[in-house]
Design a protein around this nucleic acid. Structure first.
Lengths: 198, 198
DNA sequence: ATTCTACAAACAAACAGTTGTTTGGAACAG
DNA sequence: CTGTTCCAAACAACTGTTTGTTTGTAGAAT
């Protein structure tokens, strides 16, 4: 009990956990591994956290919060729907790549959270998806996007390519995060097909 | 040693592994769990397999092979590029949903394979991605797809929405697998934006 | 300045249980 | 009678967590 909620050591622990959970998975990472990463015995870690689950939640929640924060910025912009969608995807790509580890854990390991903690994260994830649906609905209403659009499915298309970034993006690559977001937005909005006439 | 490569029991074991690895992850599933699922002691499983890694490889490889098989069918069709892309996505969605467990393991747990086994899977995954790039290149050459397309990135867009199906598709949902594939193909090819004139 | 107090941080050791795997022998099949 | 299939038991190592105790270091009291 009575665990320090914030301290230098705890922050080190959380970011070591982000790295290791991302590389080896939650169940593939032992308290031993985490202790080794900080140069401590595994028992000593319990001076800073309540349990291994706590650590997982901290990492996942950190990932979720950053996406939400950046998403709100794009949503609350005053601009045409396609422009806000573009901005949303750029922001998503930037956040995803600036926190590759926490983001990967957010996407892959959240399901290993205990039920109550999992609910918290699901709520945040739903809110994030709702942002995209909102943008799309506005676009249809304004006549900027196809009228026959299946909003949920289109939102999934947008989020899919954003979330899949983790599995292929390499930091030594030639594309910047925002360029990736821009490119995806252009393809999604404009389509891959050759337009007949302009 | 001298492990039966094929038998009824082994098949049962592999599909139990697919289900459990998919639900709890590779490291989150113990040999105990697998034994319980078949009504055997965990030690008894070693009459049918060499190691836990063997099981993981079998599940992942099974997932990979089915995607490749179905993908080839779409690629070798004689039809315009957009039509082949549509067929590829429909096939992908069908395979993904008909083998939800193995597919999830193929996508999420392959990284826990030992190096040499991992190479095998990477090769198959690359071949699958190359199918999509091939279709896209043909489409650009034939003037059916935009000339300025970034082939690799467009392929990633296609594969992203295909692979992300696992995280949202529910079997009790109202959309059939092929309808999902069709819908994604339409959005990707045509774009979300409202076309000015037709 | 020197003592006393308070506290966080870490160790060392143990907890009870689980991990993947191997072995020797039994039951049962063709 | 030869294999296959399984159990029973053990293997050493590792799991997450708790305990009692030591250490370093602040601030307050002397």
């Amino acid at each position: 009990m009575s665990v320090a909620l914030r301290s230098r050591r705890r922050d080190e622990l959380v970011s070591a956990a982000a790295r290791l959970f991302s590389e080896r998975g939650y169940h593939g990472t032992s308290m031993q591994d985490l202790g080794d990463a900080l140069g401590l015995l595994r028992g000593s870690l319990y001076a800073h956290i309540g349990s291994k689950q706590d650590l997982l939640f901290d990492v996942v929640d950190q990932g979720a919060r950053r996406f939400l924060q950046r998403g709100e910025h794009a949503v609350h912009q005053v601009a045409p729907s396609p422009q806000r969608l573009r901005d949303f995807l750029v922001g998503h790509a930037e956040v995803a790549i600036e926190q590759l580890d926490a983001g990967r854990v957010f996407l892959n390991e959240w399901r290993y959270l205990d039920d109550s903690l999992q609910e918290d994260i699901k709520t945040k994830r739903d809110a994030y998806e709702e942002m995209v649906r909102g943008i799309l609905r506005d676009g249809v209403a304004a006549g900027e996007l196809r009228a026959d659009l299946d909003i949920s499915l289109a939102a999934r298309l947008v989020l899919s390519c954003g979330n899949w970034i983790y599995s292929w993006y390499r930091l030594d690559g030639e594309m910047s995060p925002s360029a990736v977001g821009e490119a995806f937005a252009n393809m999604i909005i404009g389509g891959l097909h050759q337009e007949e006439a302009v």
